[in-house]
Amino acid sequence: MKTTWLGTALMGLIVGAMILVPFVWTGGEAANLVALILVWALFAIGFDLVFGTAGMLSFGHAALLGSGGYALAILTVAHGWGFMPALGMAALVGAAMAFGLSIFAVRVSGLFFSLLTLALAQMIYVLASTKLRGLTGGLDGIAGVPRPALFGIDLYDNDNFYVFIVVVFLIGLGLMALLRASPFGRSLRAVQANEVRAAQLGYNVQRLRQAAFVISGAYAGVAGSLLASLIFYISPQMLHWSVSGDVLIMTVLGGKGTLLGPVLGVAVFELLKEELSQYTQYWYGILGAVFIAATIFLPNGIAGLFAPRRDRDKGEGR
């Protein structure tokens, strides 16, 4: 879906303002919360390359996020790697995991892709919590995941680490903007819009889908690493199916198929969670109801509000 220029600018302003908040309110909870939002947003914009742009509903993205997080945790904690090389490696591991899953998953299309990614990711979850205990620490997970040391700045300070996350997020966002606007990004949209026609024009549809999935895996790998580093901890919880569900909810709430929609969706999700969980322990169910309502009444999410009128109610992005 396309948002208008004005809409995109407005969304950009909102995201920009959100990023600036912790610079104003230093030393408080703001840095932690917005950092969490930005890390999840990185995950979500990667997810949306597969979901919103290429049109494949992956239910297995938890496996990609988790494998990146575990890669960083294992390399730094058990093997003494530096943070930055480990972060790069985590991106590769996320991509490699995505490639591994895609070998099976892109063979089937449509709804089967969702079923299959869900099942395969569940397998990774089971493996990490049982058979690979030696590597992953089983259900206990790995504690003491470090933060980077850069230019002698103390990144264990939340405000400083926040700056690091903002930088990584902006690089990720910029690369994704370029990717989406490039011929490659367009070809993914073409595959989504009409798979048969795209193949008939000479596009290798399976290869394109696989490429999108692998890139998405790299994003998830980086996001998983930053998440583990943000909370100093990783457990199989990061591989749990509900993580795949959360990123889906965020993306739909924000607006799939747009660059900034998923970012807004993450922000709304996290803020709703913060607010609702103060009043009730059953906040997740309320979020579910919000999600159902959004699916019916706001198919293009928040970004849909910024779209030309004629595109609004269609549930576009086939």
Binding site: G245, L248, F291, G315
Partner: peptide, 29 residues
């Protein structure tokens, strides 16, 4: 719910049934 999204892409129906999981799980809790 479901009835309202038949004319859209299948993905939306999947999304709805996924939303039901969250609500049913929570109600059960």
């Amino acid at each position: 719910a479901l009835r309202r999204v038949y004319d859209r892409d299948h993905i939306y129906q999947l999304l709805l049934t996924f939303g039901f999981i969250l609500v049913i799980d929570e109600l059960t809790k």
